[in-house]
Computed example of a mutant assay.
Amino acid sequence: MRFFIGWSAVVAVLLLCACERQDAAPLDQQLYVWQRQWTPAHELALKGSHGDFSTLRVLALQAFPNAGWSRARVDFALLKQDARPLIAVIRLDGQLQALDQQAVTAQILQVLADWQGQGLTPSGVEIDHDAGNARLPDYTRFLVHLRGALPANLPLSITALPAWLDSPQLPALLAAVDSSVLQVHAVSDPRRGLFDPEQARRWANAWGRVTDRPFYLALPAYGVALLPDASGAPVVESEVTLERSGERRELLADPQQLSRLAIELREDRPAHLAGLIWFRLPLANDRRAWSLSTLRAVARGDALSSQLGLTFTEHNGLQDIALRNVGNLDSAWPARITVNARGCEGADALAGYALQQTADLLTFTRLRDGRLPAGGQRAIGWARCANIDQGGSHVDP
């Protein structure tokens, strides 16, 4: 039997499909606040992130094998003023020999009580514990115990590792919590960098097939350095500088790469994926994190670009020369900058650049790598010249 469908019916079906796509809930965007010591820089960073990230996941407490318990020195007044939903993250080092259910639970409950005493109302607890697969049954029992000790209306989540996909214990582990955060960034192989978007996508799809509860992806907005140890194996240096000799190899998550992945995840979402959590809230002096401008642009799905140029500031005949980035994408320092200038009595480069001078040209050559954040500016040198053609400058990437 043959059926004939009029054009009006076809158009109605297409419009209905389009409406269904538009009505799909957008991916939630959240932030990890991972600094162990809060500083005045947090105030500006929190204000700048408020419009684009719904929830803060704040490092609250850590347990180490030898050092014991350590609390992050959080600015409670800033968090209270911020007023976004707040999840307290408890970091239990993966090298801990065992989790004492009673002792760990008591520490967590005390942190929650202390935060509440400071006027904060956490909307959840997250446990960050990099347990090996062999220890997942014990970890599951701990989570069941903790779930029973926490208020029934307080959600419990965990940070999760892709390696757990190989464990038959994973469904039971995920059933013990309300949600999970799949961490898809780490230095597993320096040759592959800090992040592999195709691998992350495969892990996310696999995770969505295992869990029947909401999960999030933890995505990188930072970099690390790799240093060799005595055997030549890489040692990771992140927020804290390590007192080690040897050449540092910098690895930085690529904003363009992460932006493409985020767009793909919005358009073709893995089952049960509820949102993205960016690691970490960048402070103005955080040398290994994206700038907040770049992070916000990636979270929004904006087109990314660096726009480098020079500024000249005159003081009694002396011109201060600075490099600026008016785009929304952090940029590497340019390799070479030239300025048309004549009649120069003196000129010099500042740290990071060297100057070569001819009769009508100043050439600044990069001596070491560095990054210029989106919206940032950096002085590169000065010159006292009879004439500087500001429109005749050129910046080579």
Rank of each mutant, 00 (worst) to 15 (best):
residue 30 Q to W: 09
residue 94 G to R: 13
residue 241 T to H: 06
residue 41 A to C: 07
residue 176 A to G: 09
residue 267 E to Y: 06
residue 78 L to R: 09
residue 67 A to Y: 05
residue 99 L to V: 11
residue 294 T to C: 08
residue 11 V to P: 00
residue 312 F to D: 12
residue 81 Q to W: 14
residue 38 W to P: 03
residue 3 F to D: 08
residue 306 S to L: 08
residue 192 R to G: 05
residue 16 L to I: 06
residue 313 T to K: 14
residue 183 Q to Y: 02
residue 357 Q to H: 05
residue 356 Q to G: 00
residue 347 A to F: 00
residue 302 D to R: 03
residue 335 A to G: 12
residue 34 W to K: 03
residue 296 R to F: 00
residue 170 L to F: 07
residue 344 C to G: 08
residue 216 Y to A: 07
residue 45 A to D: 06
residue 227 L to A: 12
residue 292 L to T: 04
residue 233 A to H: 12
residue 268 D to G: 11
residue 264 E to F: 06
residue 190 P to F: 06
residue 365 T to H: 00
residue 46 L to V: 11
residue 369 D to T: 12
residue 215 F to E: 03
residue 261 L to Y: 01
residue 83 A to L: 02
residue 384 R to W: 04
residue 374 A to M: 08
residue 309 G to P: 08
residue 57 R to E: 11
residue 104 V to P: 02
residue 82 D to R: 08
residue 389 D to P: 05
residue 316 N to D: 15
residue 360 D to T: 14
residue 177 V to A: 08
residue 155 P to V: 09
residue 113 A to W: 06
residue 124 G to K: 10
residue 355 L to R: 01
residue 349 A to C: 08
residue 251 L to R: 04
residue 38 W to G: 04
residue 165 L to Q: 07
residue 80 K to E: 15
residue 167 S to P: 06
residue 237 E to G: 05
residue 117 G to C: 07
residue 233 A to K: 15
residue 128 D to I: 02
residue 340 N to Q: 15
residue 322 A to G: 10
residue 120 L to W: 11
residue 346 G to C: 00
residue 284 A to Q: 13
residue 63 A to W: 12
residue 288 R to A: 03
residue 47 K to T: 13
residue 122 P to D: 09
residue 282 P to F: 02
residue 174 L to P: 07
residue 199 Q to V: 10
residue 269 R to V: 07
residue 289 A to N: 07
residue 394 H to V: 05
residue 16 L to E: 13
residue 328 N to P: 09
residue 371 R to D: 01
residue 1 M to R: 12
residue 218 A to M: 05
residue 155 P to G: 10
residue 206 A to S: 14
residue 371 R to K: 13
residue 12 A to R: 15
residue 161 L to R: 10
residue 104 V to C: 10
residue 42 H to E: 15
residue 303 A to F: 04
residue 7 W to A: 15
residue 8 S to H: 14
residue 107 Q to D: 10
residue 186 A to W: 10
residue 36 R to A: 12
residue 120 L to N: 10
residue 150 L to Q: 08
residue 397 P to W: 10
residue 4 F to L: 14
residue 297 A to Y: 00
residue 12 A to V: 07
residue 179 S to H: 13
residue 25 A to P: 12
residue 294 T to D: 01
residue 129 H to L: 09
residue 221 A to M: 07
residue 247 E to I: 11
residue 338 T to C: 03
residue 321 I to F: 02
residue 388 I to L: 15
residue 62 Q to G: 13
residue 336 R to L: 10
residue 244 R to G: 09
residue 74 V to F: 01
residue 83 A to K: 12
residue 356 Q to K: 01
residue 79 L to H: 07
residue 229 D to V: 11
residue 51 G to I: 08
residue 230 A to Y: 05
residue 45 A to L: 09
residue 237 E to R: 07
residue 177 V to P: 05
residue 364 F to C: 00
residue 177 V to T: 11
residue 199 Q to W: 14
residue 353 Y to H: 00
residue 193 G to L: 04
